[in-house]
């Protein structure tokens, strides 16, 4: 019964991941061809695809919320905090010296997408380590 539930969870995440990947591919192609990439929402869709694929890998382990899972989550939040701070410093520098000319919406969308991707990729890396 438990193993069936695990397989079901993994499949569902893979299906959603492919769906998000196709949607992001379509929207990114449209934004690139019109010269407005990154529009904001296109990057968010890529982040959602990454999140779904990471969850597909993590779901069988994370379904049982045991002490190892809690440790992976705790450590991933700790490392992600510093990585996200790094993104912010880089982004602030780029914006300050006008290396990047993006709107506030784009900046927030990029940061949100990077945050989502960083947290989940860190969890995958740490689940390999622990």
């Amino acid at each position: 019964m438990i193993s069936l539930k695990k397989q079901y969870d993994r499949k569902l995440f893979v299906i959603f991941g492919i769906m998000f990947l196709l949607m992001s591919g379509l929207i990114s192609a449209a934004t690139i061809s019109t010269g407005v990439f990154p529009a904001g929402h296109d990057i968010m869709l890529i982040a959602m695809a990454v999140m779904c694929f990471c969850n597909a890998y993590l779901a069988p382990q994370f379904i049982q919320n045991d002490e190892r899972t809690k440790r992976i989550k705790e450590r991933s939040m700790f490392y992600s905090y510093f990585i996200i701070l790094g993104y912010m410093i880089i982004m602030l520098t780029f914006l300050q010296f006008h290396f990047l000319a993006i709107t506030a919406y784009q900046a927030v969308a990029i940061l949100a997408a990077l945050t989502i991707m960083t947290v989940f990729i860190t969890m995958v890396v740490l689940s390999k380590r622990y």
Binding site: Q61, I63, Q64, D66, R68, R71, S127
Partner: peptide
């Protein structure tokens, strides 16, 4: 033990 199989594998290997 009410943990995941991956946890047992990690403990056995000495990774956790």
């Amino acid at each position: 033990l009410n943990v995941s199989r991956q946890t047992i594998i990690s403990i056995e290997k000495g990774k956790y």
